[in-house]
C-alpha cells in the first residue's frame, strides 16, 4: 500500500530517461551504423519488422562501423573535437575565474540584498538567447557600439575587427553561461556558516588563509557542478561559435550541423553525436566518482 507510490516515484525518472533519452539515442546509434543513401529517410538499411526474419537478419548484417572509422581517418573531425574541448576548457576556466568572485560577493551580501543580486543574475534569461547574441553582434560589428566608443575616445584610429574572432566567441560564451557558473557556486558558498571562518581566524589563520583552508575546499562541490554545467553544453555549442567566431575552424556542433543539413549525411552526423556523448561521459563519471568519495568521507 505505502511502498507502491514510492516505487512509482523512483521509477518515473527512469521511465522518462528511457522514453525520451535512451530510445531516441538507440535510433541515433542505429543510424550511425548505417550508410547514407539518396532516399527517404536518407540512409540504409531500414528495419522493417513486417518483412520477415530473413530481411531483418540481412538488415543487421548491413550495419557497419565504417562511419566511425571515417571519423578517425579524416582530420576534419578530430580537429573539431579537439577545438571543442579546448574552447570549452578555456571558456570554463574563464567562467570560473569570473563567476567565483561574483558568487562569493553575493553570498556575503546582507540577506535582503542577496535576493536582488540573484534576480540580476537571472534577468538576462527573460530575453531570448538569440536576441542577446544578435545584440552582441550589433555591439561588436565594424560600425558597432564598441568601435564607435573606441574611436570617439581616440583609443584606436581605425575600427577594430571584433566580430568573427575567437575573442568574440569567448565573450559570447562567458556572457551566456555565466549564470550557470554563478548559481551553483552561490548555492554552496551561501551555505558555508560564517562561524567556520571565524573559527579559522580564532585558530590563527589570517582571513586570506581562512579562505583557502576553509571556503575554497567547502565550495568544491559547487565548483564541480558549475564546471560541468558550463563545460558540457559548451563542447556541443553551435549557435555562439556559428554567429560570433570566424569560419576558419569549426567546433563539433558546427561540424555536426554541416554533416546533417548540408551534406545530408545522417549516419556520419549520428556517429559524431555518439562519439561526442562518449567523450562527455568521461568527465561526468569522474565528477560522480569525486562526489561519491566526498560523500563517503573517510580518508
Amino acid at each position: 500500500m505505502f511502498t507502491r507510490p514510492a516505487r512509482l516515484a523512483s521509477i518515473a525518472p527512469l521511465l522518462w530517461m528511457l522514453l525520451f533519452f535512451l530510445v531516441p539515442f538507440g535510433f541515433v546509434v542505429k543510424i550511425s551504423l548505417s550508410q547514407a543513401a539518396i532516399a527517404q529517410p536518407p540512409y540504409l538499411p531500414l528495419f522493417d519488422l513486417g518483412a520477415g526474419w530473413e530481411a531483418l537478419q540481412a538488415a543487421f548484417a548491413a550495419l557497419s562501423l565504417d562511419n566511425f572509422k571515417l571519423l578517425f581517418a579524416d582530420d576534419l573531425y578530430w580537429r573539431s573535437y579537439l577545438r571543442s574541448l579546448a574552447v570549452a576548457a578555456a571558456a570554463t576556466a574563464l567562467l570560473l575565474m569570473i563567476g567565483y568572485p561574483i558568487a562569493y560577493a553575493m553570498a556575503r551580501l546582507p540577506r535582503r540584498w542577496q535576493a536582488l543580486a540573484m534576480m540580476l543574475v537571472i534577468i538576462p534569461f527573460w530575453t531570448s538567447f538569440l536576441i542577446r547574441i544578435y545584440a552582441w553582434i550589433n555591439i561588436l560589428q565594424h560600425d558597432g557600439l564598441l568601435n564607435q566608443i573606441l574611436l570617439g575616445l581616440h583609443l584606436v584610429s581605425a575600427p577594430v575587427v571584433w566580430l568573427s574572432t575567437d575573442s568574440a566567441m569567448m565573450l559570447g560564451l562567458v556572457y551566456s553561461y555565466l549564470p550557470f557558473m554563478i548559481l551553483p557556486l552561490y548555492a554552496t558558498l551561501s551555505k558555508i556558516p560564517p562561524s567556520l571562518l571565524e573559527a579559522a581566524q580564532d585558530l590563527g589563520a589570517s582571513p586570506r588563509r581562512a579562505f583557502w583552508l576553509v571556503t575554497w575546499p567547502l565550495s568544491l562541490p559547487g565548483i564541480g557542478a558549475g564546471v560541468l554545467l558550463c563545460f558540457i553544453p559548451i563542447v556541443g555549442e553551435f549557435v555562439i561559435p556559428d554567429l560570433l567566431a570566424g569560419s576558419d575552424s569549426m567546433m563539433i556542433g558546427q561540424t555536426l550541423w554541416l554533416e546533417f543539413f548540408t551534406n545530408k549525411d545522417w549516419p556520419v552526423a549520428s556517429a559524431l553525436a555518439v562519439l561526442l556523448l562518449a567523450l562527455l561521459l568521461l568527465p561526468l563519471l569522474a565528477y560522480e566518482r569525486l562526489q561519491r568519495r566526498q560523500l563517503e568521507g573517510g580518508r
Binding site: 571565524e198 573559527a199 579559522a200 580564532d202 585558530l203 590563527g204 589570517s206
Partner: peptide, 22 residues
Amino acid sequence: VLPHRRPVNMMFQNYALFPHLT
C-alpha cells in the same frame, strides 16, 4: 589585535568544526 593574533581561543556555540577535515 586581530582575532588570529590574540592569545585567546573560543569554543563556538555550534562548535564550528570544519566539516571537510578529520
